[in-house]
Design a protein around this nucleic acid. Sequence first.
DNA 1: TTTCAAAGTGAATGATCAATCACTCACCGC
DNA 2: GCGGTGAGTGATTGATCATTCACTTTGAAA
Lengths: 210, 210
Amino acid sequence: MSAAITPLNGLTASVSECTFTYMTQRANTLSTADARRPVVAAAAVRAFARGGYHGTTIAAVGAEAGISTAYVFKLFPGKEQLFVAALDYCFEQIEAALEAGAQAAQDVSAAGILDAMGDAYAELISDRALLLLQVHAQSVADVPEIGAALRRGLERITRFAQARSGAADADVQRFIAFGQLCHLIVTAGIADLDDGWAGVLNAGIRHPRG
Amino acid sequence: MSAAITPLNGLTASVSECTFTYMTQRANTLSTADARRPVVAAAAVRAFARGGYHGTTIAAVGAEAGISTAYVFKLFPGKEQLFVAALDYCFEQIEAALEAGAQAAQDVSAAGILDAMGDAYAELISDRALLLLQVHAQSVADVPEIGAALRRGLERITRFAQARSGAADADVQRFIAFGQLCHLIVTAGIADLDDGWAGVLNAGIRHPRG
DNA sequence: TTTCAAAGTGAATGATCAATCACTCACCGC
DNA sequence: GCGGTGAGTGATTGATCATTCACTTTGAAA
């Protein structure tokens, strides 16, 4: 029907093997599977963010990406690997945002850089998809491949925050801990509450969509 | 078949309306539905902790409780309300543990009490079911009833920690934030890792099963 | 123009699961 | 012993979903 082949919108994608360098054709042409995979992974982030791993169908991911269910299975061997690809993509985005935040920091002390990274993270997750996917991933981390992907992502951002800011271990730990508190505030819908107890948790947290 | 009517093992249960006071019969007699509900809720905590909301069948909850699937539906109107009952039960246990910890505190300063509550929490969640249920609840908090139950529980323990310890708002916030970090460490399986990055996150956290 | 491989799809299939129903059995007051 | 009420179950239903398969379309090279 209205197949609407969307021409990889600005997605740089890690097209590492460019054996077909001259094949930089026009848009609207069929894309190669390798180029399409990251686009579908990005769509999977949005779809899985809505319903979680068990609550999201492959059909929903296909619809989000504008392709058929069957083709999702041609691009990824199964649901589990698709979720892992989405999670990897998620942490890629986060590290990039932290780097951008660090680069934009006014105060270049360790604490200043860490703070700027916090701001950048709050900005990044203003659409909530990246945040929700992390929470859903925690929920199914007992699936071995997903747990491994989660640890890989956490290692990535922990190491990055530490190395890029030069902050002390305790400060990096606090950075991550308050990130988790932020996740709780958003998922539980505490940000919008005015009660005293909610104020205790919300204090000083830069909320997405604030 | 092997119906094996288990006689409410030691579960005090809030049998609030005892219109049938004389009916304190023996064990091995059929239990009333009101007395059985909390027992099934406790079983639901364990079952849902394993698979999450979408990944756990009512049959699994029934098996955990030692009753048939059909009878679970006679005790609770549906899966959603059963999960909510499990979550309420979970936060009840947590508040009780915090109170016990506070009572056992050596140092009765605000910080000392908060610390003792942290120890008691670490002890409580050593079997991980209560911890995992909270993570799963975050994951499906967009289901209105479940989100409301989660907020209710968080309000409960935040208010309790604040009132019982008398600590400053910022310290209570930190208490909750590091609780969330603890959840991440356990679900992602970081506690067992030896790498430097994992050490940053693990530092000073009292791990369950440590 | 023909041809071939890769892109992409519609329609099954087989399993699983929430929810329902019709039923049996034990107890209690009479 | 009889009748009713509530405890508890096995079998079924209707829907949903991951995965597969057979099929069509497209683009470009020979």
